[in-house]
Simulated assay, not measured.
Amino acid sequence: MTNKDVFSNKFYIPPQGDIVCQVTDEYGDIVVADTEDYRILRFEGINEQSKMLKKDVNLPVHQYSKAMLMATTFTSGRPALLLGLGGGALLRALHSLNDQRVVDVVELRSGVLSVAREWFTLPESDKISYYIEDAEHYLRRESIPQYDLIFSDLYSAFSMEPRQGTEVFLRLCLSTLSDEGWLVLNYYEVPRTGSAFHSALQAVFGEVLYCRVPSGNVVIYAARKPHQHTINERREQAKLLLSRLGIGGETGDLSKNITPLFP
């Protein structure tokens, strides 16, 4: 099995909507499509990278985005780092929840940022900074802030960025997390016991949770050190956030999927 096969999104969504914008950079096509209710970002015209509800642009659409947002209840801190912008769904939701939150956004492709600004209603704020840079290069900078939340959502048109599943990457993230910080990572499966990634998570972090979402993605929450909250308390915190977003009734069961990775 090739690396492409291993890291592929197994849940292919046929392209929808009428193409309203298409640009090409050194990495391939960036496509924007419209349906009556949604605006959709795709790479290479294949899988949905991001989806925006036109009548409420701050409401996350994809289940994995909602699962990633649940981590905002795990820490009272504010500064956040987004690795991978896409169409800005996570950024819009974070800003709407707290417009005073400082957010640094790292995106590899300048074309993605340009398209997101033009077509996906990115919030304008002096609290938000954008960096066109490779995520690993950014994490290796000599001087970067400490973050309470790091959201890592690094995907190409066809697969997850393999470095996102390595111990080297996890340790780079740990080095810039605050003492109470959490890494929130969009992964493609529950890390298997005995796998290199499972062992790396156990070696690097003090507490690791995960949430399997209906699309098949798995969101991993990893903290520098263990916390005193029970898993039921975490689920209740997350459920309240979903209700605050107005999606608790629709996806209330999502919070119940938060599970410790290690016994």
Results as ranks from 00 to 15, higher is better:
residue 61 V to H: 05
residue 39 R to A: 06
residue 16 Q to F: 07
residue 55 K to A: 07
residue 13 I to P: 00
residue 22 Q to T: 13
residue 30 I to N: 03
residue 41 L to H: 06
residue 57 V to D: 05
residue 34 D to Y: 09
residue 51 K to I: 10
residue 48 E to M: 03
residue 44 E to S: 14
residue 14 P to G: 04
residue 16 Q to I: 08
residue 58 N to V: 06
residue 13 I to M: 04
residue 19 I to H: 02
residue 46 I to L: 15
residue 32 V to C: 13
residue 47 N to Y: 02
residue 11 F to K: 10
residue 50 S to I: 00
residue 38 Y to N: 05
residue 38 Y to M: 08
residue 40 I to S: 11
residue 40 I to V: 14
residue 42 R to H: 03
residue 23 V to Q: 14
residue 52 M to L: 10
residue 5 D to F: 08
residue 38 Y to G: 01
residue 11 F to I: 06
residue 22 Q to H: 14
residue 28 G to R: 09
residue 24 T to I: 13
residue 18 D to G: 03
residue 55 K to L: 02
residue 52 M to P: 02
residue 58 N to H: 14
residue 50 S to F: 01
residue 38 Y to T: 00
residue 56 D to V: 09
residue 43 F to A: 11
residue 38 Y to S: 00
residue 47 N to G: 03
residue 35 T to P: 06
residue 5 D to C: 00
residue 45 G to A: 08
residue 26 E to R: 12
residue 49 Q to D: 07
residue 56 D to Q: 13
residue 50 S to P: 02
residue 47 N to T: 03
residue 16 Q to N: 12
residue 25 D to E: 08
residue 32 V to P: 09
residue 60 P to C: 06
residue 23 V to R: 11
residue 59 L to E: 10
residue 36 E to Y: 13
residue 42 R to F: 02
residue 36 E to D: 15
residue 7 F to Q: 00
residue 54 K to D: 04
residue 54 K to M: 05
residue 37 D to M: 05
residue 29 D to Q: 14
residue 16 Q to L: 14
residue 61 V to Y: 08
residue 52 M to D: 02
residue 59 L to Y: 05
residue 11 F to H: 15
residue 4 K to Y: 14
residue 8 S to E: 14
residue 9 N to D: 15
residue 49 Q to Y: 02
residue 5 D to W: 08
residue 43 F to D: 12
residue 16 Q to E: 15
residue 7 F to C: 02
residue 10 K to H: 11
residue 52 M to A: 01
residue 23 V to A: 12
residue 47 N to E: 08
residue 15 P to E: 07
residue 56 D to A: 13
residue 57 V to Q: 13
residue 29 D to T: 01
residue 59 L to P: 00
residue 53 L to Q: 09
residue 13 I to Y: 04
residue 49 Q to E: 08
residue 36 E to M: 13
residue 34 D to V: 01
residue 60 P to H: 05
residue 21 C to S: 14
residue 62 H to W: 11
residue 51 K to P: 01
residue 49 Q to L: 01
residue 62 H to K: 14
residue 32 V to Q: 12
residue 57 V to C: 09
residue 11 F to P: 03
residue 54 K to E: 06
residue 62 H to C: 08
residue 25 D to K: 07
residue 41 L to C: 03
residue 40 I to W: 09
residue 59 L to F: 07
residue 53 L to N: 06
residue 56 D to L: 09
residue 42 R to Y: 03
residue 5 D to K: 09
